[in-house]
């Protein structure tokens, strides 16, 4: 697809990224923030995988009779990034659980009030 329309994929991906980013910075609920980070990061993965696609190419597993493959490098990078995302989610949620145990709430505004009071 030629012309600016050939970029529609990227534009939708940017909307997805910004949805996640918005959840992170606008929502006071800590679990929601972690969900936002997850959505933000997953959307960035889609961005990378989109750039790796080659029109009419196939998955980068070498086969007889095929000579057009999609780019394997972004796939590798994103495999690593998915793991980083899991690590962040796990640690973030563990922190949320501990915060709930010591503050009794997972709402950022309420936590702020308690911190100001002490």
């Amino acid at each position: 697809m030629q012309g600016p329309l050939g970029l529609y994929n990227y534009w939708i991906v940017i909307v997805l990224m910004m949805t996640g980013f918005y959840i992170v910075i606008a929502r006071p609920n800590l679990i929601k923030k972690i969900v936002g980070l997850f959505v933000f990061q997953t959307s960035v993965f889609i961005f990378f995988i989109t750039m790796a696609k080659v029109e009419d190419g196939t998955a980068p597993i070498i086969q007889e009779g095929v000579n057009l493959y999609s780019n394997p490098l972004p796939h590798v990078l994103i495999l690593t990034a998915i793991v980083v995302s899991l690590a962040t989610t796990a640690l973030g949620l563990a922190l949320v659980v501990r915060i709930r145990e010591s503050y009794g709430t997972i709402n950022e505004d309420d936590i702020h009030v308690q911190d100001e009071a002490s």
């Binding site: 993965f45 995988i49 696609k53 597993i61 493959y69 994103i78 495999l79 998915i82 899991l86």
Partner: peptide, 13 residues
């Protein structure tokens, strides 16, 4: 988008 390895990982993780 031809990223089968990534798809498998994303689904699992």
């Amino acid at each position: 988008l031809d990223a089968v390895d990534v798809a498998l990982t994303e689904a699992a993780i």
